[in-house]
């Protein structure tokens, strides 16, 4: 699966099916600090994601 980070860099993940929040935590990302979408659709962090998925992250916390 492909993970597109808030800074637009991409990570290819070779793990199989997993929960989105497990993936985020493994990548060092707190699920409360981002919103995820798959194919343009917002998904909660306990969504099961598969090998062919492309997950895009939006960072929500900004200072100021």
């Amino acid at each position: 699966m492909k993970l597109i980070l808030p800074d637009q860099t991409e990570r290819v993940i070779t793990e199989g099916t997993m929960l989105l929040d497990q993936l985020l935590l493994a990548e060092g990302i707190n699920p409360n600090e981002v919103i995820a979408s798959r194919g343009g659709f917002l998904i909660p962090e306990d969504t099961v994601i598969g090998e062919d998925d492309e997950i895009r992250l939006i960072r929500i916390a900004h200072g100021g």
Binding site: G39, G40, L42
Partner: peptide
């Protein structure tokens, strides 16, 4: 940004059947 339906592995609303 849009929301879809019937997406694999996506939980359903606790109050209705929508994704």
């Amino acid at each position: 940004m849009v929301t879809g339906s019937g997406t694999y592995g996506q939980p359903r609303c606790s109050l209705c059947s929508e994704p």
